[in-house]
């Protein structure tokens, strides 16, 4: 492979990993638990901002380039962990406000509006996170320590994203196949039934919301450490729509399906297209790719609402249930 090709492939791979992680977080919130998380991109964004300011160093050290309210120079894995904690915290704060018993379309709109408010406020306030210009020149983690060529570093980053992908997949898989996952699915299918068998619906939703928020924040942290900049334009509400499209097209509730969905929608139709030769007037390809995503989503909801890889149906034979919990959880597996 030529080195230009290697740059292209490794960049796509990093994007793929980031989007797959983000789609898994949304799958936990929406696919598994049924939370209409229309502010999902906020979690990715807070992760990205936190990872950025905790890699950039104290605000005073960069006063000539950009302004932000706080920051530090933490060693490598810490910015990502701080980001994850920030995402979880944001979910813990937003959850009690939004996870109320509103009609579901209005619940979605409430979160969407929160996302819009956040964009407006962050864009307008120059001192908090450098306003509409956003943060830039975020140092790449470990790049000075490792002393790799830029191409080698690309592949190092691919490896790092792959490892984190594997960890998140492990966590997701544990959740979906555990009794907790079964309880979350019950909440999704029928809140009343879940409450009737003694499940604390709000606590279950909060758990999914918080873990999903942390996962989203990790994806944002990885993205900002790779591309080095983050601005309100990177997290418009439309990005939430893209991830919803990925989850629904891939197969809501199915981890592998959702990963495929992330490869088809954001990576396949948004990122990969950027490198194609352009045709037509400027901006036409961008517009057309949105048309394609919109139509693809409508077609899937019409013809195959369960997605490419549907969530596996789970059967619990009555005889097993009589034999107690042990047998039931085995049937689940």
């Amino acid at each position: 492979m030529s080195s230009a090709m290697q740059f292209y492939v490794s960049t796509l791979l990093v994007y793929a990993g980031v989007y797959i992680i983000a789609a898994w977080g949304l799958n936990l919130q929406f696919g598994l638990t049924g939370i209409l998380s229309f502010a999902y991109i906020l979690f990715q964004s807070i992760g990205a901002y936190l990872a950025a300011v905790f890699s950039l160093g104290p605000p005073a050290s960069r006063a000539d380039v950009e302004t932000y309210a706080f920051g530090a120079n933490l060693p490598f894995p810490l910015p990502i962990l701080v980001a994850a904690a920030g995402g979880a915290l944001l979910a813990a704060v937003l959850g009690p406000i939004v996870l109320r018993r509103l009609r579901s379309d209005l619940q979605a709109i409430t979160m969407l509006v929160m996302s819009l408010i956040a964009t407006d406020v962050i864009s307008s306030d120059q001192s908090l996170l450098n306003g509409a210009t956003g943060l830039s020149l975020v140092p790449a983690p470990l790049s000075t320590v490792l002393g790799l060529s830029s191409l080698q570093y690309q592949w190092f980053f691919v490896g790092m994203v792959a490892v984190i992908c594997a960890i998140v997949y492990f966590v997701m898989n544990r959740i979906t196949s555990s009794p907790l996952g079964r309880a979350l699915r019950t909440v999704r299918e029928s809140e009343r039934s879940a409450a009737a068998i003694g499940k604390n619906v709000f606590a279950l939703r909060m758990r999914a919301f918080i873990v999903g928020g942390a996962i989203a924040a990790v994806s944002g942290a990885l993205l900002v450490l790779f591309i080095g900049s983050w601005a309100p334009g990177s997290w418009l509400y439309i990005e939430t729509f893209v991830l919803f499209a990925a989850v629904i097209i891939g197969g809501s509730g199915n981890n592998l399906g959702v990963a495929i969905g992330a490869l088809v929608v954001p990576v396949g139709s948004v990122e990969a297209v950027q490198y194609l030769p352009s045709f037509g007037p400027p901006g036409m390809i961008d517009a057309l790719q949105w048309v394609v995503i919109g139509l693809l989503l409508l077609l899937f909801i019409w013809f195959r609402p369960t997605g490419l890889l549907p969530e596996r149906r789970r059967y619990f034979p009555v005889s097993d249930l009589r034999n107690g919990r042990q047998a039931a959880s085995e049937a689940d597996r």
Binding site: L36, F244, I248, G294, L295, I301
Partner: peptide, 14 residues
């Protein structure tokens, strides 16, 4: 209800 939000949002984008 939520499905329709997604459908109309998709339509708006198209």
């Amino acid at each position: 209800l939520f499905g329709m939000v997604i459908v109309t949002l998709g339509l708006a984008i198209v």
